[in-house]
Amino acid sequence: MNPSVLPVFDGHNDLLLRLYQGTVDAEAIRDGCPGGHIDLPRARRGGWGGGLFAIFAPPVGESGVAGMGAFDGTGYDLPLPPALPADQALPMALAQVEQFERLAALGVITPCTTAGGIRAALGSERLAAVLHMEGAEAIDADCEALERFHGLGLRSLGPVWSRPTVFGHGVPFRFPATGDTGPGLTDAGRRLVRECNRLGIMLDLSHLNEAGFNDVAALSEAPLVASHSNAHALCPHARNLTDYQLDRIAERGGLVGLNFAAAFLRPDGRMNGDFGVDLMLRHLDHLLAHLGEQGVGLGSDFDGATVSREIGDCSGLPVLREALQRHGVDAPLMTRLCHANWLRVLEQTWGE
């Protein structure tokens, strides 16, 4: 990593899914490749130091969410794929763990399970990588598989993506809408919260509906975290957080990672990258107003969404840093936004 560039620790990326689906291989991520948002040469140029690497079990067959073009128009409510049984999701998740381990073997990442490990990796040539699960389909209702994944390095988990799981309900891809879209956690979901607290696994609220959010807030002993979410007041998408939710996260000393995805930034909800970083700054200001300078980080959604053409991919992060400087962000706040706030909340969650 270029020592003159302040490294970014990123709350969400979907590189493991790209590797699992075979659109790119680990050697190409090491050496550099066209397409996508992340490879090691581009990360070094942009100061992308790593982050939470998501395991995600994609929809099976033709049951997936419609393409990015469906996020256009004056409004939308996209049908979600059905729930995915654990026996189908588990091999997908384990295959992505194998891709994670392959990246480590090739010298692309350093798997991290402590904040100290992240700090050391951010100063190295490798990417700091925390294994995350987006949607806990691969975990059984009794949470027996959770221990197995913890042993493999899992330190962050979102109980749901957007389709339902045995643990709860996610928000749909709906605009305009709120996250008040259904019931809260199931009995298994409450068990999952307790087990994650016991094991020191961070709970990610980014896709959870409002009732589920409130249940986690009532049950969890850890800081409340939404790894890649934006302000509903500026973009009324079901995926975004209301001011009430932001205030609850602030009360618990938690964190929200600013999502770079167009549909969750743009006031029109479109997944179109024709917008400037000024729109990201508007959401950032709103998050800072509710969460304070210690409660905001970055959660790009690289390799899982359309981002601003001004940034393009992880090599374009200097564009955002320069915009933040022009916006009046001083050096201490820049450090907090880029990685220090993530380190703080992970350290507290993991009991270090």
Score class of each variant (00 low, 15 high):
Met1His: 14
Ser4Lys: 13
Asp10Lys: 02
Gly11Trp: 00
His12Ser: 06
Gly22Pro: 08
Val24Gln: 12
Gly32Ala: 12
Cys33Phe: 06
Gly46Asp: 04
Trp48Gln: 03
Trp48Ile: 03
Val60Thr: 12
Glu62Tyr: 07
Ser63Trp: 11
Val65Asn: 06
Met68Arg: 15
Ala70Asp: 10
Gly75Ala: 15
Tyr76Ala: 07
Leu84Gln: 09
Ala93Leu: 10
Ala104Thr: 06
Ala104Trp: 06
Gly107Trp: 11
Pro111Gly: 10
Cys112Leu: 01
Ala115Pro: 01
Arg119His: 03
Ala120Arg: 04
Met133Phe: 09
Ala136His: 02
Ala141Trp: 09
Ser156Thr: 00
Gly158Phe: 01
Pro172Glu: 10
Gly184Trp: 08
Asp187Leu: 14
Ala188Gly: 07
Gly189His: 07
Met202His: 01
Leu203Gly: 00
Leu203Phe: 00
Leu203Met: 08
Asp215Lys: 06
Leu219His: 12
Ser220Leu: 04
Glu221Ala: 15
Asn230Trp: 03
His237Cys: 14
Leu241Gly: 03
Leu241Ser: 05
Leu246Gln: 10
Ile249Asp: 01
Asn259Gly: 01
Phe260Ala: 05
Phe260Ser: 04
Arg270Trp: 14
Val277Leu: 13
Met280Ser: 12
Arg282Asn: 12
His283Glu: 11
His286Gly: 08
Leu324Trp: 14
Gln325Val: 15
Arg326Tyr: 07
Pro332Trp: 12
Ala340Asp: 12
Trp342Pro: 02
Thr349Arg: 02
Gly351Arg: 13
